[in-house]
Design a protein around this nucleic acid. Sequence first.
DNA 1: GCGTATATGTAGAACTTCTAGGTGTTCTAT
DNA 2: ATAGAACACCTAGAAGTTCTACATATACGC
Lengths: 111, 111
Amino acid sequence: MNNEKSEFLKGTLDMLILNVVALGPIHGYAIAQRIQQISRDFFKLPQGSLYPALHRLEDRGWLKAQWKATDTGRDAKFYALTRQGRKQLEAEVRNWEQLTNAVALILRTAE
Amino acid sequence: MNNEKSEFLKGTLDMLILNVVALGPIHGYAIAQRIQQISRDFFKLPQGSLYPALHRLEDRGWLKAQWKATDTGRDAKFYALTRQGRKQLEAEVRNWEQLTNAVALILRTAE
DNA sequence: GCGTATATGTAGAACTTCTAGGTGTTCTAT
DNA sequence: ATAGAACACCTAGAAGTTCTACATATACGC
């Protein structure tokens, strides 16, 4: 069924996007590329995950969007972090660290 | 909305359950207690998550169940890992390690 | 002119997890 | 004795995320 299809984002997608956007205004397509490159191809963010996520984050007031031209002269929607978005990112990173610590505690309990 | 309601399992639930069951036959209620205790109360596994997950894992052939009496003389359903379940656990742990490494790569890319 | 890469988007399905409810038994404190 | 907490199982339905698949359009290289 899910033999070796896709790599799961396991609820980390929002945090990853926020973290990439925190580096400076960037458009959606480039966010996906960066996440894939930095993660050494572990994450292959499909567009059907990317764009709904961006809209979700914008709706929640964590990102704001603005149409601008890219280097190559095409129109693209550039996203930037809001103040709330920065706070959200910090909260998600803290929670992620707690989560991985908690999981590590369980996994260390091996035979 | 989700201000400080519940701690997310973020797709780790199956792995955590398999890991706890790997230590030896144990019943559902005790699995939830162990996960909560070992994680120092980070995970508070609600029964509405626990039991469907156990049935799912059993349906997939990763766990097998057997009714037995507990120490205190009550009937409970004891779960044990199947051979497939052990392989699944190993695969999930490997994948989790890759996931956390990939996330760490992204998060390290900070300003 | 054709294919690939760039760039955005939606619809619907699949899956996991949560909330909220239910049943019954054993232990403990009053 | 009995009330309430802890033990032990369960389901239904809602909510949320992520996926597959599709759709559109522009720029670039050959």
